[in-house]
């Protein structure tokens, strides 16, 4: 999952990036001013945006308004020192999905981001299930047929994204857009490499293949794929 943090306090933004990326699911882009943040929010595909309100250039509420006016429904969590009831009401009325005042508990922030992301994928259960595969988005433990196994961060991120969109075809471009931050050099075959690794961990030794390749379209995580 790709998260955008728009925060002008450089050290706080760095801490946010470190904290959020401590969750294997997330990769974070950081912007330190309103104009850059708005540009990224409108041109890149993020699974959630953490938005400060008091920003140089364009303020947070204006960015939020612009995002919503553009038709994007990216979940937005406002993270600000302005946390009176009136501020919260105004932020939510402007189209934010959640609101958290500074200072904050990192654990609470992470839980809220996870909840926002889950909701955006219409997932209510923090444990994703596909056949006998379970992906616990809280503990990041993956297990199949009651046997859990560790996954490197990028593979877990890939699997969780596929799990969030279980049953849907996910293109390589989408995976590239959602699994890597802005600074990554995106090689065309990197997705194939990681899907291959993931498939060897998930499906090897099991009669039912869960990761399906749809030629020319992308990948599907599903118990079966009728379109193949």
């Amino acid at each position: 999952m790709r998260i955008l943090v728009v925060e002008d306090e450089v050290r706080l933004a760095e801490n946010l990036k470190a904290g959020i990326e401590s969750v294997p699911s997330f990769v974070v882009d950081v912007s330190h001013d309103g104009e850059d943040g708005q540009h990224l929010a409108l041109t890149e595909k993020y699974d959630a945006i953490v938005l400060d309100l008091m920003l140089p250039g364009i303020d947070g509420l204006s960015i939020l308004r612009t995002i919503r006016d553009s038709g994007r429904d990216t979940p937005v969590l406002i993270l600000t020192a302005r946390n009176t009831t009136e501020d919260v009401i105004r932020g939510l009325d402007f189209g934010s999905d959640d609101y958290l005042g500074k200072p904050f508990e990192m654990g609470e922030l992470l839980a809220r981001i996870k909840a926002l992301v889950r909701r955006s994928f219409h997932q209510t259960d923090p444990v994703l299930r596909v056949a006998d595969l379970t992906i616990d988005t809280r503990s990041h433990v993956v297990s199949r047929a009651d046997k859990s196994f560790p996954l490197p961060a990028l593979e877990y991120r890939l699997l969780e994204y596929l799990g969030m969109r279980a049953g849907q075809v996910v293109s390589k471009e989408e995976l590239l857009e959602h699994l890597y931050d802005y600074n990554w050099e995106k090689f065309s075959n990197v997705i194939e490499v990681y899907v291959s690794k993931l498939r060897s961990r998930i499906d090897r030794g099991h009669a039912t293949q869960l990761i399906h390749t749809i030629r020319g379209q992308g990948y599907v995580l599903a118990e079966s794929w009728e379109g193949q």
Partner: peptide
Amino acid sequence: LRTPVATLKSGIQAALLN
């Protein structure tokens, strides 16, 4: 003060998560 406190706190918590 909230912002520097938030910075300090998030830094410590990020370190604890590491």
